[in-house]
Protein backbone atom coordinates (compact mmCIF):
# COMPACT_ATOMS: atom_id res chain seq x y z
CA UNK A 1 0.00 0.00 0.00
CA UNK A 2 1.10 3.54 -0.59
CA UNK A 3 -0.07 6.90 0.72
CA UNK A 4 -1.61 9.40 -1.67
CA UNK A 5 -2.99 12.87 -1.22
CA UNK A 6 -6.15 13.88 -3.03
CA UNK A 7 -5.42 16.86 -5.29
CA UNK A 8 -9.01 18.04 -4.85
CA UNK A 9 -9.69 18.04 -1.09
CA UNK A 10 -6.23 17.36 0.30
CA UNK A 11 -7.22 14.25 2.27
CA UNK A 12 -4.64 11.45 2.58
CA UNK A 13 -5.53 7.81 2.08
CA UNK A 14 -3.95 4.49 1.06
CA UNK A 15 -4.12 2.73 -2.26
CA UNK A 16 -2.63 -0.54 -3.50
CA UNK A 17 0.79 -0.27 -5.20
CA UNK A 18 -0.36 -1.32 -8.68
CA UNK A 19 -3.27 1.11 -8.95
CA UNK A 20 -3.11 3.64 -11.75
CA UNK A 21 -6.38 5.41 -10.96
CA UNK A 22 -8.16 5.96 -7.73
CA UNK A 23 -11.23 7.66 -6.32
CA UNK A 24 -10.87 9.73 -3.19
CA UNK A 25 -13.06 8.18 -0.49
CA UNK A 26 -13.72 11.61 1.00
CA UNK A 27 -14.76 13.78 -1.93
CA UNK A 28 -15.25 11.31 -4.79
CA UNK A 29 -12.62 12.92 -7.01
CA UNK A 30 -11.19 10.34 -9.41
CA UNK A 31 -7.69 10.92 -10.70
CA UNK A 32 -4.65 9.43 -12.39
CA UNK A 33 -2.07 8.57 -9.74
CA UNK A 34 0.90 9.43 -11.96
CA UNK A 35 -0.24 12.73 -13.40
CA UNK A 36 -2.76 13.59 -10.65
CA UNK A 37 -5.05 14.66 -13.50
CA UNK A 38 -8.75 14.32 -13.12
CA UNK A 39 -10.51 11.37 -14.60
CA UNK A 40 -13.92 12.57 -15.50
CA UNK A 41 -16.22 10.22 -13.71
CA UNK A 42 -19.99 10.37 -13.48
CA UNK A 43 -22.71 8.17 -12.30
CA UNK A 44 -26.43 8.04 -12.78
CA UNK A 45 -28.40 8.22 -9.58
CA UNK A 46 -30.88 5.48 -8.68
CA UNK A 47 -34.33 7.01 -9.00
CA UNK A 48 -35.94 3.58 -8.79
CA UNK A 49 -35.11 1.91 -5.51
CA UNK A 50 -35.48 -1.82 -4.87
CA UNK A 51 -39.20 -1.62 -4.11
CA UNK A 52 -40.20 0.68 -6.92
CA UNK A 53 -38.07 -1.30 -9.40
CA UNK A 54 -39.76 -4.55 -8.34
CA UNK A 55 -43.19 -2.93 -8.59
CA UNK A 56 -42.29 -1.61 -12.03
CA UNK A 57 -41.20 -5.08 -13.13
CA UNK A 58 -44.43 -6.66 -11.85
CA UNK A 59 -46.71 -4.04 -13.34
CA UNK A 60 -44.90 -4.35 -16.65
CA UNK A 61 -45.44 -8.11 -16.62
CA UNK A 62 -49.08 -7.71 -15.65
CA UNK A 63 -49.88 -5.70 -18.74
CA UNK A 64 -48.52 -8.49 -20.96
CA UNK A 65 -50.82 -11.08 -22.46
CA UNK A 66 -51.62 -14.31 -20.63
CA UNK A 67 -50.00 -13.69 -17.26
CA UNK A 68 -51.50 -15.93 -14.51
CA UNK A 69 -54.20 -14.26 -12.37
CA UNK A 70 -52.36 -14.90 -9.12
CA UNK A 71 -49.05 -13.58 -10.44
CA UNK A 72 -49.08 -10.38 -8.41
CA UNK A 73 -49.48 -12.21 -5.08
CA UNK A 74 -47.65 -15.42 -5.85
CA UNK A 75 -44.37 -14.12 -7.23
CA UNK A 76 -41.50 -13.62 -4.79
CA UNK A 77 -38.06 -12.11 -5.13
CA UNK A 78 -35.31 -14.61 -4.46
CA UNK A 79 -32.30 -12.48 -5.32
CA UNK A 80 -31.74 -8.87 -6.19
CA UNK A 81 -28.52 -7.02 -7.04
CA UNK A 82 -27.83 -3.42 -7.95
CA UNK A 83 -24.97 -3.37 -10.45
CA UNK A 84 -23.03 -0.21 -11.15
CA UNK A 85 -21.77 -0.87 -14.65
CA UNK A 86 -18.93 1.17 -16.13
CA UNK A 87 -19.17 2.62 -19.62
CA UNK A 88 -16.68 4.81 -21.45
CA UNK A 89 -18.38 7.71 -23.23
CA UNK A 90 -16.91 9.25 -26.36
CA UNK A 91 -17.86 12.07 -28.65
CA UNK A 92 -16.76 11.09 -32.14
CA UNK A 93 -16.69 12.89 -35.45
CA UNK A 94 -15.42 11.48 -38.72
CA UNK A 95 -15.22 12.70 -42.26
CA UNK A 96 -14.81 10.62 -45.40
CA UNK A 97 -13.79 11.96 -48.78
CA UNK A 98 -14.80 10.30 -51.99
CA UNK A 99 -13.24 10.92 -55.35
CA UNK A 100 -15.16 9.96 -58.44
CA UNK A 101 -15.56 11.00 -62.05
CA UNK A 102 -18.33 13.39 -60.98
CA UNK A 103 -16.18 15.23 -58.49
CA UNK A 104 -15.14 15.13 -54.87
CA UNK A 105 -17.57 14.92 -51.97
CA UNK A 106 -17.18 14.71 -48.22
CA UNK A 107 -19.45 12.97 -45.73
CA UNK A 108 -19.73 13.46 -42.00
CA UNK A 109 -20.75 11.36 -39.05
CA UNK A 110 -21.18 12.74 -35.54
CA UNK A 111 -21.87 10.19 -32.85
CA UNK A 112 -21.86 9.88 -29.08
CA UNK A 113 -20.89 6.38 -28.08
CA UNK A 114 -21.09 4.55 -24.77
CA UNK A 115 -18.77 1.54 -24.75
CA UNK A 116 -19.31 -1.00 -21.93
CA UNK A 117 -16.05 -1.13 -19.97
CA UNK A 118 -16.69 -4.44 -18.26
CA UNK A 119 -17.56 -7.77 -19.82
CA UNK A 120 -18.85 -10.99 -18.39
CA UNK A 121 -22.52 -10.38 -17.62
CA UNK A 122 -25.18 -12.54 -19.21
CA UNK A 123 -26.67 -9.24 -20.36
CA UNK A 124 -23.53 -7.92 -22.09
CA UNK A 125 -25.34 -7.69 -25.40
CA UNK A 126 -28.15 -5.61 -23.85
CA UNK A 127 -25.61 -3.14 -22.48
CA UNK A 128 -24.15 -2.54 -25.91
CA UNK A 129 -27.41 -1.08 -27.16
CA UNK A 130 -28.28 0.66 -23.92
CA UNK A 131 -29.24 4.32 -23.99
CA UNK A 132 -28.98 6.58 -20.99
CA UNK A 133 -31.81 8.19 -19.15
CA UNK A 134 -32.32 11.77 -20.17
CA UNK A 135 -32.39 12.64 -16.49
CA UNK A 136 -29.51 12.23 -14.14
CA UNK A 137 -25.77 12.00 -14.60
CA UNK A 138 -24.02 13.73 -11.78
CA UNK A 139 -20.50 13.72 -10.41
CA UNK A 140 -19.38 10.42 -9.05
CA UNK A 141 -19.85 10.21 -5.31
CA UNK A 142 -18.17 7.58 -3.18
CA UNK A 143 -21.39 7.02 -1.23
CA UNK A 144 -22.63 5.18 -4.33
CA UNK A 145 -20.37 2.27 -3.50
CA UNK A 146 -22.29 1.40 -0.38
CA UNK A 147 -25.53 0.87 -2.22
CA UNK A 148 -24.62 -1.42 -5.06
CA UNK A 149 -22.07 -3.72 -6.59
CA UNK A 150 -19.40 -1.58 -8.19
CA UNK A 151 -17.37 -2.76 -11.16
CA UNK A 152 -14.10 -1.04 -12.01
CA UNK A 153 -13.54 -0.85 -15.76
CA UNK A 154 -11.66 -3.87 -17.09
CA UNK A 155 -11.40 -2.40 -20.56
CA UNK A 156 -9.19 0.65 -20.66
CA UNK A 157 -10.31 3.95 -22.11
CA UNK A 158 -7.53 3.60 -24.71
CA UNK A 159 -8.90 0.38 -26.17
CA UNK A 160 -12.45 1.71 -25.96
CA UNK A 161 -11.22 4.74 -27.85
CA UNK A 162 -9.78 2.55 -30.61
CA UNK A 163 -13.12 0.75 -30.73
CA UNK A 164 -15.06 4.04 -30.99
CA UNK A 165 -12.81 5.19 -33.77
CA UNK A 166 -13.36 1.96 -35.72
CA UNK A 167 -17.12 2.33 -35.30
CA UNK A 168 -17.36 5.92 -36.48
CA UNK A 169 -14.92 5.22 -39.33
CA UNK A 170 -16.86 2.24 -40.59
CA UNK A 171 -20.14 4.18 -40.40
CA UNK A 172 -18.85 7.18 -42.31
CA UNK A 173 -17.18 4.92 -44.91
CA UNK A 174 -20.40 3.03 -45.38
CA UNK A 175 -22.22 6.30 -45.90
CA UNK A 176 -19.58 7.33 -48.45
CA UNK A 177 -19.81 4.01 -50.28
CA UNK A 178 -23.59 4.25 -50.43
CA UNK A 179 -23.43 7.81 -51.76
CA UNK A 180 -20.56 7.72 -54.19
CA UNK A 181 -19.14 5.17 -56.62
CA UNK A 182 -15.49 6.03 -56.41
CA UNK A 183 -12.52 5.88 -54.12
CA UNK A 184 -13.43 6.71 -50.51
CA UNK A 185 -11.08 7.25 -47.63
CA UNK A 186 -11.24 8.64 -44.11
CA UNK A 187 -10.03 12.23 -44.27
CA UNK A 188 -10.55 13.26 -40.66
CA UNK A 189 -11.42 11.55 -37.44
CA UNK A 190 -11.75 13.01 -34.00
CA UNK A 191 -12.51 10.98 -30.89
CA UNK A 192 -12.93 12.86 -27.60
CA UNK A 193 -13.18 11.10 -24.31
CA UNK A 194 -16.16 12.48 -22.40
CA UNK A 195 -15.56 10.35 -19.33
CA UNK A 196 -16.37 7.22 -17.41
CA UNK A 197 -19.97 6.67 -16.41
CA UNK A 198 -21.27 4.22 -13.86
CA UNK A 199 -24.83 3.22 -14.66
CA UNK A 200 -27.17 1.49 -12.19
CA UNK A 201 -28.96 -1.67 -13.28
CA UNK A 202 -31.14 -3.87 -11.09
CA UNK A 203 -30.92 -7.60 -11.63
CA UNK A 204 -33.87 -9.55 -10.27
CA UNK A 205 -34.47 -13.25 -9.76
CA UNK A 206 -37.95 -14.22 -8.73
CA UNK A 207 -39.96 -17.36 -8.20
CA UNK A 208 -43.41 -18.20 -9.38
CA UNK A 209 -44.69 -21.69 -8.46
CA UNK A 210 -41.17 -23.11 -7.95
CA UNK A 211 -39.93 -21.89 -11.29
CA UNK A 212 -37.22 -19.19 -11.39
CA UNK A 213 -37.36 -16.16 -13.69
CA UNK A 214 -35.12 -13.15 -14.12
CA UNK A 215 -35.40 -9.49 -15.07
CA UNK A 216 -33.33 -6.34 -15.57
CA UNK A 217 -34.42 -2.80 -14.76
CA UNK A 218 -32.67 0.45 -15.56
CA UNK A 219 -32.15 1.99 -12.12
CA UNK A 220 -32.41 5.57 -13.32
CA UNK A 221 -35.47 5.65 -15.55
CA UNK A 222 -37.06 2.36 -14.56
CA UNK A 223 -37.10 0.97 -18.07
CA UNK A 224 -37.60 -2.78 -18.23
CA UNK A 225 -34.55 -3.92 -20.18
CA UNK A 226 -35.34 -7.60 -20.06
CA UNK A 227 -37.85 -9.83 -18.33
CA UNK A 228 -38.94 -13.46 -18.22
CA UNK A 229 -42.39 -14.40 -16.99
CA UNK A 230 -44.81 -17.32 -16.90
CA UNK A 231 -47.86 -17.77 -19.12
CA UNK A 232 -51.03 -19.09 -17.60
CA UNK A 233 -52.44 -22.46 -18.64
CA UNK A 234 -55.61 -20.78 -19.92
CA UNK A 235 -53.60 -18.41 -22.10
CA UNK A 236 -51.58 -21.27 -23.56
CA UNK A 237 -54.74 -23.23 -24.25
CA UNK A 238 -56.38 -20.21 -25.85
CA UNK A 239 -53.36 -19.63 -28.08
CA UNK A 240 -53.17 -23.29 -29.13
CA UNK A 241 -56.89 -23.49 -29.82
CA UNK A 242 -56.84 -20.23 -31.78
CA UNK A 243 -53.92 -21.28 -33.93
CA UNK A 244 -55.52 -24.65 -34.66
CA UNK A 245 -58.77 -22.83 -35.47
CA UNK A 246 -56.96 -20.40 -37.77
CA UNK A 247 -55.19 -23.25 -39.58
CA UNK A 248 -58.43 -25.18 -39.95
CA UNK A 249 -60.44 -22.17 -41.10
CA UNK A 250 -57.76 -21.15 -43.58
CA UNK A 251 -57.47 -24.63 -45.06
CA UNK A 252 -61.24 -24.85 -45.38
CA UNK A 253 -61.50 -21.33 -46.80
CA UNK A 254 -58.57 -22.10 -49.08
CA UNK A 255 -60.38 -25.18 -50.35
CA UNK A 256 -63.44 -23.06 -51.23
CA UNK A 257 -61.42 -20.28 -52.80
CA UNK A 258 -59.33 -22.82 -54.71
CA UNK A 259 -62.33 -24.62 -56.14
CA UNK A 260 -64.20 -21.42 -57.07
CA UNK A 261 -61.31 -19.44 -58.55
CA UNK A 262 -59.11 -22.06 -60.13
CA UNK A 263 -61.22 -25.23 -59.68
CA UNK A 264 -58.44 -26.85 -57.73
CA UNK A 265 -59.43 -27.54 -54.12
CA UNK A 266 -56.17 -29.30 -53.19
CA UNK A 267 -54.10 -26.28 -54.22
CA UNK A 268 -56.33 -24.03 -52.09
CA UNK A 269 -55.97 -26.29 -49.06
CA UNK A 270 -52.19 -26.37 -49.38
CA UNK A 271 -51.92 -22.59 -49.75
CA UNK A 272 -54.34 -21.95 -46.90
CA UNK A 273 -52.39 -24.32 -44.69
CA UNK A 274 -49.03 -22.68 -45.44
CA UNK A 275 -50.38 -19.15 -45.07
CA UNK A 276 -52.08 -19.88 -41.76
CA UNK A 277 -48.96 -21.57 -40.39
CA UNK A 278 -47.06 -18.36 -41.11
CA UNK A 279 -49.73 -16.16 -39.59
CA UNK A 280 -50.29 -18.23 -36.46
CA UNK A 281 -46.55 -18.67 -35.81
CA UNK A 282 -46.50 -15.91 -33.15
CA UNK A 283 -49.33 -17.63 -31.27
CA UNK A 284 -47.83 -21.09 -31.53
CA UNK A 285 -44.34 -19.99 -30.51
CA UNK A 286 -45.73 -18.18 -27.46
CA UNK A 287 -47.92 -21.13 -26.47
CA UNK A 288 -45.07 -23.61 -26.71
CA UNK A 289 -42.35 -21.55 -25.02
CA UNK A 290 -41.55 -22.33 -21.40
CA UNK A 291 -40.90 -18.72 -20.41
CA UNK A 292 -42.17 -15.64 -22.18
CA UNK A 293 -39.74 -12.76 -22.63
CA UNK A 294 -40.16 -9.07 -23.11
CA UNK A 295 -38.61 -5.65 -22.84
CA UNK A 296 -39.90 -2.12 -22.79
CA UNK A 297 -39.32 0.18 -25.69
CA UNK A 298 -38.89 3.86 -24.87
CA UNK A 299 -37.63 5.54 -27.99
CA UNK A 300 -38.50 4.48 -31.48
CA UNK A 301 -35.65 3.18 -33.54
CA UNK A 302 -33.67 6.01 -35.03
CA UNK A 303 -34.36 5.82 -38.72
CA UNK A 304 -30.82 6.87 -39.56
CA UNK A 305 -28.86 4.81 -37.09
CA UNK A 306 -30.27 2.25 -34.72
CA UNK A 307 -28.68 1.45 -31.42
CA UNK A 308 -28.74 -2.22 -32.43
CA UNK A 309 -26.49 -1.31 -35.31
CA UNK A 310 -23.96 0.32 -33.02
CA UNK A 311 -24.19 -2.70 -30.73
CA UNK A 312 -23.35 -5.08 -33.55
CA UNK A 313 -20.41 -2.90 -34.53
CA UNK A 314 -19.09 -2.94 -30.98
CA UNK A 315 -19.34 -6.71 -31.06
CA UNK A 316 -17.60 -6.89 -34.41
CA UNK A 317 -14.71 -4.59 -33.59
CA UNK A 318 -14.24 -5.71 -30.00
CA UNK A 319 -12.53 -8.75 -31.52
CA UNK A 320 -9.33 -6.83 -32.04
CA UNK A 321 -9.41 -4.75 -28.89
CA UNK A 322 -5.99 -4.39 -27.33
CA UNK A 323 -7.36 -4.69 -23.81
CA UNK A 324 -4.75 -2.65 -21.98
CA UNK A 325 -5.48 -3.50 -18.37
CA UNK A 326 -6.22 -0.66 -16.00
CA UNK A 327 -5.99 -1.33 -12.33
CA UNK A 328 -8.54 0.53 -10.31
CA UNK A 329 -8.47 0.85 -6.64
CA UNK A 330 -11.57 2.11 -4.94
Amino acid sequence: MKQVKCPNCGASFEVIETASFTTCPYCGYTFNLQTLQEWVHYFFPVYFNQNSAWLKLKSFILRRYGVPHDFYESSNITNITLHYIPLHVFHTEAEATCQSGKGTATYHKVLDLAIPAYNGFWFDSLLRSHKFSVRGRIFFKPSVLERGKYYPPSISSESAKILSQSIVNSLVLREANESCKGYSRISKVDVNYVGLVHYPIWEFYYNYKNESYKGLIDGTNGRVMFVEYPLSREAKTFLLVSSVAIVAASSLGGMMIGSILVSNAILGIILGFIGSLVSSAPLLLTALSLKERGSEEISKKDSLLSTEEVASLIEKFAGFKTNIPVTFDI
Binding site: R63, Y65, S242, I246, A249, S250, G253, G254, I257, G258, L261, V262, N264, L267, G268, L271, G272, G275, S276, V278, S279, S280
Partner: peptide, 30 residues
Amino acid sequence: PVFFRQRILNLVGSLVAVLVGVGVISLWLR
Protein backbone atom coordinates in the same frame (compact mmCIF):
# COMPACT_ATOMS: atom_id res chain seq x y z
CA PRO B 1 -53.88 -1.67 -22.77
CA VAL B 2 -55.02 -4.15 -25.42
CA PHE B 3 -58.53 -5.38 -24.72
CA PHE B 4 -59.75 -8.90 -25.41
CA ARG B 5 -62.11 -7.70 -28.16
CA GLN B 6 -59.18 -6.09 -29.99
CA ARG B 7 -57.16 -9.29 -29.77
CA ILE B 8 -60.01 -11.24 -31.37
CA LEU B 9 -60.45 -8.59 -34.09
CA ASN B 10 -56.77 -8.87 -34.92
CA LEU B 11 -56.98 -12.65 -35.16
CA VAL B 12 -59.99 -12.40 -37.48
CA GLY B 13 -58.12 -9.84 -39.59
CA SER B 14 -55.19 -12.20 -39.77
CA LEU B 15 -57.45 -14.98 -41.04
CA VAL B 16 -58.96 -12.72 -43.72
CA ALA B 17 -55.48 -11.67 -44.86
CA VAL B 18 -54.45 -15.31 -45.24
CA LEU B 19 -57.52 -16.08 -47.37
CA VAL B 20 -56.93 -13.08 -49.63
CA GLY B 21 -53.32 -14.23 -50.02
CA VAL B 22 -54.50 -17.72 -50.92
CA GLY B 23 -56.83 -16.32 -53.57
CA VAL B 24 -54.15 -14.16 -55.16
CA ILE B 25 -51.50 -16.86 -55.22
CA SER B 26 -53.82 -19.50 -56.62
CA LEU B 27 -54.77 -17.10 -59.43
CA TRP B 28 -51.08 -16.65 -60.13
CA LEU B 29 -50.50 -20.41 -60.19
CA ARG B 30 -53.34 -20.85 -62.68
